[in-house]
C-alpha cells in the first residue's frame, strides 16, 4: 500500500511538472466545449428533449465530458507499448513489482491531478456562461466513486491494447482502432442519449460507456437506488474483466517477448 502510494505520487508529479501544458490543455478543452455546446444548443431550437436530456442536462454533459477527458485519459496512452517496443519492459518484468499494479497506482495518482487542474477550470467556465445541472450531495459522492472506477476501467482497457505490442512491433494501428471504438461508444463524441435507441442500448451494455457516460449520468441524477447500484456494479465488473484480461495478455506476452537489440 505504501509502495502504491509512492508510485501514485510520481504519477501526479509527472504531470504537475508541466504547468504550461496544463494551461494549454485547459484552453483547448474550453474552446472545444464552447463549440460543442453551441452545436448541441442548435438541436434544442427544434425540440426540448432528446433521449430524456433537457438543455441543462446536455450542456452539463458537454462540460463534464471536457472536464473528464484527461482524467480518464481518452486519448492515446502508449507508455506501456513504448516500453515493450524498446525492450524496457524486460527490466520492468525483472522487478519484484507487477507492471499492471505499477501502472494502476501511477494512473490513480495522475487522474486526480488531471481532474483538478484540467477538469475544474473548463467546467467552471462552462458553468459561468451556461445554466448547468448540479448534483445532490448523494449524487456528487456517487459521481466521485464512479469517476474513480471509470479511471480503472480506462486504464484496464489501455493496458490491454498497449499489451498488443508484444505481438505487433508497431501498435499505432491497433491504438487507432481502439481509440475510434472507445471515443464513440463511451459517449465522448456525442452523449449516448442522442444515439438511435438501439445503438444507445448496445453502447450502454459495452464497457466503454463505463468510462464516460456512466459517471456523467450519475451527476445528472439519472440513476438512483437499484439503477445506481447496477451501473456502479457494471463499472466494477468491467474494471475486473479488463484487469484480468490484461494479466492474461501480460503472461502470454512474457513468453513471447524478444528484446530488440539487447
Amino acid at each position: 500500500m505504501r509502495l502504491d502510494w509512492e508510485i501514485a505520487k510520481r504519477g501526479w508529479r509527472r504531470y504537475a511538472a508541466y504547468p504550461w501544458a496544463t494551461a494549454a490543455g485547459v484552453f483547448t478543452n474550453t474552446i472545444f466545449g464552447f463549440i460543442q455546446a453551441y452545436i448541441l444548443l442548435a438541436v434544442y431550437r427544434h425540440r426540448s428533449d432528446v433521449g430524456g436530456y433537457d438543455t441543462a442536462d446536455t450542456l452539463t454533459y458537454v462540460w463534464l465530458a471536457q472536464a473528464l477527458i484527461m482524467t480518464v485519459y481518452m486519448f492515446g496512452w502508449q507508455e506501456l507499448a513504448l516500453r515493450i517496443r524498446d525492450g524496457s519492459i524486460a527490466t520492468d518484468l525483472a522487478r519484484p513489482l507487477d507492471p499492471q499494479r505499477y501502472w494502476l497506482a501511477y494512473d490513480l495518482g495522475r487522474a486526480p491531478y488531471h481532474f483538478i487542474f484540467r477538469g475544474l477550470i473548463p467546467f467552471a467556465i462552462g458553468a459561468v456562461v451556461f445554466r448547468l445541472h448540479y448534483p445532490s450531495a448523494g449524487d456528487a459522492f456517487a459521481f466521485v466513486l464512479s469517476v474513480t472506477l471509470a479511471v480503472v476501467v480506462s486504464l484496464g482497457f489501455r493496458f490491454l491494447y498497449n499489451s498488443s505490442a508484444f505481438w505487433f512491433i508497431d501498435v499505432r494501428g491497433v491504438m487507432m482502432v481502439s481509440l475510434t471504438v472507445s471515443l464513440f461508444l463511451s459517449g465522448m463524441v456525442m452523449p449516448l442519449a442522442f444515439f438511435p435507441h438501439w445503438l444507445g442500448v448496445v453502447a450502454r451494455a459495452l464497457p466503454f460507456a463505463s468510462i464516460m457516460q456512466t459517471p456523467i449520468d450519475i451527476w445528472l441524477g439519472k440513476h438512483h437506488g437499484a439503477s445506481l447500484a447496477g451501473v456502479i456494479a457494471l463499472q466494477l465488473l468491467w474494471a475486473l474483466v479488463f484487469l484480468a484480461l490484461g494479466r492474461l495478455t501480460l503472461r502470454a506476452g512474457r513468453g513471447k517477448l524478444v528484446i530488440q537489440g539487447g
Binding site: Y18, W20, A21, A23, A24, G25, F27, T28, T30, I31, F32, I35
Partner: peptide
C-alpha cells in the same frame, strides 16, 4: 516550450 496544445484549439478545434 510545453504549451503545444494551445495550437490544437485552433487546428483540431
Amino acid at each position: 516550450t510545453d504549451g503545444g496544445e494551445f495550437t490544437n484549439a485552433f487546428t483540431y478545434g
